[in-house]
Design a protein around this nucleic acid. Structure first.
Lengths: 341, 341
DNA sequence: ATGAAAGCGCTAACAC
DNA sequence: GTGTTAGCGCTTTCAT
């Protein structure tokens, strides 16, 4: 194992000291151009690559920020990450990604790993399982920037970037009503997550405001996945109060709903279906899926900006902001009852 | 900014030395149980979190391995990553992900970042743009394990995990022939990437073996994306030698092809369409897409195992293996000409 | 069973 | 414009 070149090797070759090398490499004004040039050339010649570990240990800054998401496979999160990277790269920050796969245990592990790796800050969207948030509280205790996005938790007093989920639930429901549907069901997760609760509240508020009844057996608490969508749709269509439209907790669930409906010959838009998140596939399935767009790119952008603000303050938490974005309805075939199919 | 507890704080509180603390924390046999217990308790009390940077600097091992992929949004890569994590976690290795977004520049940056972060090894699948591989050669020069998967490059003498892409191209073509298609076109990337070249070779070999002509204007060199698929399909269907089936470079491209075909009322399986990769959406579009499954989980598993082998050897490259997996045809509606639609 | 001390590679305050 | 030196937090060899 040939060992790596360090600034000591460069210094030795050039008969100067490491401090000069260090300064030359970081383009110090006080270093002569000749020395700089010599150092840079020698560095290239010796194939020098800086050991960021050492400099981070010394300076206390890794310039790495960790992002914890349930899964990168959802286009929504992948897109947010991309925009975080984008918003941060000019400031020299790199992003590393940690997936919780919707498990608290993984999430706890993620926080631990990132903290031990001395990241300069963490951005996270919580797993569906997460109830206790003490692992996240630890980040705040260390006075490191923590920003929560989308799936946030009220116990944590930290900056957040979210969608107005009450409005999202309301809009999805109102859209169905506008399209002529009257018996609207809702499939959501059993987990007590703020954003999902807010959506239900929006759904209920919208029904009430339109003088439609809120029926307990029109609200299915289960999981969010293709499988859960199929299951929920099956249960709803077999019930006494058969709905004529379904709001699904996310686009994956909506996809399951559609598959089930097609199997039992109630192909949308006969039964209206709308999802949340505007996943990549939603425009391509048949019938293509109406959905609530959650503006992932903007969420990412806001997170990046917020982080930059936080590290500039002496105390990152001296000025806690909560950014709330507005959702948008994306209308497609699956809710086009009153339109030509 | 309250500063973090270190092993010095623990040592001071307990009136012992840092070496004892360090040993106690890493469960040295020579340390008395009483001391261990005291140390662990004090660590918890002081909210101690180890600084991996420092230990990595000292030990030269970060226990982090970097994975560079074109994009995590492709289910294929996301799935591989997941299986790499899985295969490595018992050995205490963590994975960090870097996306090249199909750009060499990002890829070069990724290698640099990961190397500077002192990762213990790198696994990569190259961007479509990559021709020159000197940035990867640098990893080998540092004698760090590098494993290439799927999109590999012949100039790099490193272990690889790939699919038999010749066979994949052959199988896709043969499948179409078996289903009664005779004029089979092929859409692929302009970039000179081994796996794509191999697929074309397989396609040509299969045509020849079935006594079918190889037509130049049946092979479209462009990009791989929904848009490119639409474009390629349009061009093929307008040509003199209108094909009756299309092999698309990946499932995204195949999706574009299908969309275009539907628009011009040549809905598959009238024109057969097959893709590569078995993306998550492929089963859900209409008609659902036949594709070549590339066994992502197994690729990930093999990468993890190979890495573990490499680091156990004094020289990681003393025994270079090339693992080649067999593809599988996943038959769905888009190629079901001779079957009930 | 535990302590003393050197050193991983780098930065930066302080000299000259 | 450049050298000297201490130290970031940890591991580890050599003592005791």
């Amino acid at each position: 194992m040939k060992k790596k070149t360090t600034i000591y090797d460069i210094a030795r070759e050039l008969n100067i000291t490491v401090s000069t090398v260090s300064r030359a490499l970081s383009d110090f004004p006080a270093i002569s151009d000749a020395t700089k040039k010599a150092v840079v050339e020698m560095a290239k010649k010796l194939n020098y690559s800086p050991n960021k570990l050492a400099s981070a240990l010394k300076s206390g800054k890794t310039h790495i920020i960790g992002v914890i998401v349930p899964s990168v496979q959802a286009h929504f999160f992948a897109s947010i990450i991309h925009c975080i990277e984008d918003g941060l790269k000019d400031s020299g920050y790199r992003v590393i990604i940690y997936q919780s796969n919707e498990s608290v245990e993984n999430e706890i592990n993620g926080v631990k790993t990132l903290l031990e790796a001395q990241v300069d800050g963490i951005m996270a969207s919580m797993s569906l399982e997460t109830q206790d948030v003490s692992h996240f509280a630890e980040i705040v205790k260390q006075n490191k920037p923590l920003i929560l996005f989308d799936r946030v938790h009220e116990d944590l007093i930290v900056p957040t970037v979210t969608l107005d989920d009450f409005k999202a639930g309301y809009m999805a429901t109102q859209h169905l009503i506008d399209r002529g549907y009257k018996k609207i069901a809702f499939i959501t997760t059993v987990h007590q997550i703020k954003i999902f609760n807010d959506r239900i509240k929006g759904y209920k508020a919208c029904l009430t405001e339109n003088n439609l009844p809120i029926l307990d057996d029109h609200i299915i608490f289960g999981g969010l996945s293709i499988k859960d969508g199929r299951f929920g749709a099956g249960r709803l269509m077999r019930s006494e109060n058969k709905p004529d439209a379904i709001v699904a907790g996310d686009d994956f669930t909506a996809l399951g709903v559609i598959k089930k409906l097609k199997e039992i010959d109630e192909t949308p838009p006969e039964i209206g279906v709308i999802g949340f998140a505007n996943e990549a596939f939603s425009a391509y399935i048949t019938p293509n899926l109406s959905t609530i767009d959650q503006h992932a790119p903007q969420i990412g952008k806001e997170c990046a900006e917020m982080f930059l603000k936080m590290i500039q303050q002496e105390n990152p938490y001296q000025n806690i902001e909560h950014i709330v974005l507005d959702p948008t309805v994306v209308e497609r075939q699956s809710t086009s009852k009153t339109l030509p199919g």
